[in-house]
């Protein structure tokens, strides 16, 4: 595989890097808000993967126009799927933030190690 071919997978490299960065933050950070930020980054990486694979070179939105017959379309299905996944991601994030608020009310801290010490 030569350099240009590797470059051709640019979006997938970015996907893999963002995914790993997010996962690292989830595992390594002790602050719960930072963990949630990591989780969001982790999920965004998947959105990028879905959006990348539906792109057809020169393709446009799948809308039938009068008089244009040989139009190339990008695949709309992954976009629909990822719209749903974004909604799921938003609800997960908001529920997670609500949990952090409750934790902060009950424990007075959002640092994981301090919470473990408190019990």
């Amino acid at each position: 595989m030569n350099f240009l071919e590797l470059l051709g997978y640019f979006n997938y490299w970015v996907f893999a890097i963002i995914l790993t960065v997010g996962l690292y933050a989830v595992i390594n950070k002790t602050n719960l808000i930072k963990k949630l930020i990591g989780l969001s980054i982790f999920q965004s990486a998947v959105f990028l993967m879905y959006i990348t694979m539906d792109k057809v070179e020169g393709g446009t939105a799948p809308i039938i126009q009068k008089g244009v017959e040989d139009q190339i379309f990008s695949n709309p299905l992954p976009q629909v799927l990822i719209l749903t996944a974004i909604v799921v991601g938003v609800s997960t994030l908001s529920l997670g933030l609500a949990m952090v608020v409750r934790i902060s009310e009950c424990y007075g801290t959002i640092e994981e190690n301090e919470i473990l010490d408190a019990d």
């Binding site: 989830v26 989780l39 997960t92 934790i103 009950c106 424990y107 473990l116 019990d119």
Partner: peptide, 11 residues
């Protein structure tokens, strides 16, 4: 203690 447990489960 359910709260940190749920947070871990959520992650």
């Amino acid at each position: 203690r359910a709260l940190p447990a749920v947070f871990k489960y959520l992650m």
